[in-house]
Simulated assay, not measured.
Amino acid sequence: MTGSSGRARELGDLLRSRRARLQPSDVGLPPGARRRTRGLRREEVAQLAAISPTYYTVLEQGRDVRPSRQVLDALAAALRLDGAERAHLHELVHGAAPAQTPVVETLPPAVPALLDRLDPCPSYVTGRCWDVLAANRAARALWTDWPARPARERNLLWWMFTDPEAREVMVDWPAEASALLGRFRSASARHPGDPRFSELLERLLAASPEVREWWPQHVVTPLSSGTKRLRHPALGEIELQHVVLQLADDPEQKLVTFTAADQDQDRIAGLLE
């Protein structure tokens, strides 16, 4: 963690937050004496991870030390981290050096053309910070008209957390918004030197009370396919299955495409006529 005090503090915050959510019974320890604070004690986590309490305390304090991958695996097991959280733990300590990337992300012309051919299946491509780089007509009809928005607002996170329209469109808004923020956190750990992540986060923290509440909880969420429920003025509520594909030219660019039941798919097509 040399030279990365901000990431060391984030590691400490993550360990502390995950320790607080566990009880002794969760990890097979006796309840012991009355506890003044919630969660496990530091020495209990150290015992479970087979490290010294002093070393664990140093990690939680955000000191600039660099635990080995073996120690991180032991901490992940002790704190019952899931796969995404464990990967995030490693990225905070052993993440790759920041890549030199262009300020403006671009797509090969074939990608927007592919999106157009996917109509009426809603499809869009997001960049590393979830800027919407391209979207077909069906996606613009169901979500928002991305090209019509100011350039700084063509971002899925910004739309999700600051535009009241998002809370109308996304039927399960709290779960969707929390998961999106968790994916953003995971991506930001892979690009610790990219100022676009910190700039967007600062804007979100200033604009959204939910981001201010949820960001300290250190939720990390992996990319995954699944189901989304959307609400449209003309169609009502519709359920969509989606898959996420990473582009070979830049794996941080994600193509997301959706399909609905046949009847709903026909109704989406009707919006485009």
Rank of each mutant, 00 (worst) to 15 (best):
Met1Pro: 15
Gly3His: 13
Gly3Tyr: 09
Ser5Pro: 10
Ser5Cys: 00
Ser5Ala: 12
Gly6Val: 09
Gly6Pro: 03
Gly12Trp: 08
Gly12Tyr: 10
Asp13Trp: 05
Leu14Trp: 09
Leu14Tyr: 09
Ser17Trp: 00
Ser17Asp: 05
Arg18Trp: 13
Arg19Cys: 02
Leu22Asn: 04
Gln23Ile: 00
Asp26Leu: 02
Arg36Cys: 07
Arg41Pro: 03
Arg41Leu: 07
Arg42Glu: 14
Leu48Ile: 12
Leu48Trp: 07
Ala49Gln: 05
Ala49Asn: 06
Ala49Gly: 05
Thr54Met: 10
Thr57Met: 02
Val58Arg: 11
Leu59Ile: 04
Glu60Ile: 08
Glu60Gly: 07
Gly62Ala: 10
Arg63Tyr: 13
Gln70Val: 13
Leu72Lys: 00
Ala74Ile: 03
Ala76Asn: 05
Asp82Pro: 11
Glu85Pro: 09
Ala87His: 12
His88Val: 00
His88Ala: 06
His88Cys: 04
Leu89Glu: 09
Leu89Pro: 13
Ala96Arg: 13
Gln100Glu: 15
Thr101Trp: 11
Glu105Gly: 09
Thr106Glu: 15
Leu107Cys: 11
Pro108Asp: 15
Pro109His: 02
Val111Leu: 15
Ala113Val: 03
Leu114Trp: 13
Leu115Ser: 02
Asp116Trp: 07
Asp116Phe: 03
Asp119Glu: 12
Pro120Asn: 07
Cys121Thr: 00
Cys121Asn: 12
Ser123Trp: 03
Val125Ser: 01
Gly127Asn: 04
Cys129Arg: 08
Cys129Leu: 01
Val132Tyr: 00
Leu133Ala: 02
Ala139Tyr: 04
Arg140Gly: 09
Ala141Phe: 14
Leu142Glu: 00
Thr144Tyr: 05
Thr144Ile: 11
Arg149Glu: 06
Pro150Gly: 07
Glu153Ile: 00
Leu156Phe: 11
Leu157Ile: 08
Trp159Met: 03
Trp159Lys: 02
Asp163Gln: 11
Pro164Ser: 06
Pro164Thr: 06
Pro174Cys: 08
Glu176Asn: 09
Ser178Tyr: 01
Ala179Ser: 13
Leu180Tyr: 01
Leu181Trp: 02
Leu181Met: 10
Gly182Asp: 06
Ser186Leu: 15
Ala189Arg: 06
Pro192Gly: 05
Arg196Ile: 01
Arg203Tyr: 04
Ala207Trp: 12
Ala207Met: 13
Ser208Ile: 09
Pro209Glu: 14
Trp214Ala: 09
His218Thr: 04
Thr221Ala: 08
Ser224Met: 09
Ser225Asp: 11
Arg231Asn: 13
Ala234Glu: 15
Ala234Asn: 07
Ala234Val: 13
Leu235Ile: 10
Gly236Pro: 06
Glu237Cys: 10
Gln241Met: 08
Gln241Cys: 07
Gln241Thr: 12
Gln246Phe: 00
Asp250Lys: 01
Pro251Cys: 12
Glu252Tyr: 01
Gln253Lys: 15
Gln253Val: 06
Phe258Met: 04
Thr259Met: 13
Asp264Tyr: 03
Gln265Ile: 00
Ile268Asn: 01
Leu271Tyr: 05
